[in-house]
Amino acid sequence: MPRYAMVIDVEKCVGCMACVIACKKENKVAEGYFRTRVVEEVRGEFPNLRMELRSELCNHCEIAPCIDACPTRASHRAKDGTVQIDHKKCIGCKACILACPYDARYIRPDGTADKCTFCQHRLKEGKLPACVETCLGKSRIFGDLDDPESEVSKLLRTHDAAVRLEWAGTKPRIFYVNKRFPGGF
């Protein structure tokens, strides 16, 4: 089975926000909710500035606090290694939302928790996740960590990749590569 992961090459993000809305349309996310976002982080003082743009989404952590927090196994690890939600089992207790340090989740209008699925339905059809497909800068790169020839594997071999809140110990599967300012954020 694959081990899906995403590498985000922050240097190539042009902040177009296409991913944010493509995700919403692809997954019919209700108004007011988002499964992915773009963070713009500026450091320094005029005129010595540095800015990083990075997209964020569910990290599909290998050690997923949301799965632990779930009382019904609605949040679970799918066979492809991604973290998924079985909506018919979700009681909407919101424990997973408080467990996730990446703010990946929200409660959708039917009362169940929701988040990025890595576009599982598209993966099954052999397509890329919608956000990756439409990423203008090709900043989002998706692939299988078990395939040494995949672009993600190659990038992770050759670059210092960072993950968000590494010290939280969740082992995220979303990696950030910043070629201009190596070493992450």
């Binding site: 090459d9 240097e11 190539k12 993000c13 042009v14 902040g15 500026v42 005029f46 005129p47 500035l49 540095r50 800015m51 990083e52 743009l53 203008l136 800068g137 090709k138 900043s139 070629k179």
Partner: peptide
């Protein structure tokens, strides 16, 4: 533009504002 930035093009941005492009 992103492709060029990825390939290491030197970007010079003249702008009174630190635009997204300026960050590259």
């Amino acid at each position: 533009f992103a492709e060029a930035v990825g390939k290491g093009a030197t970007v010079i941005v003249v702008d009174p504002r630190f635009s997204t492009a300026a960050s590259k």
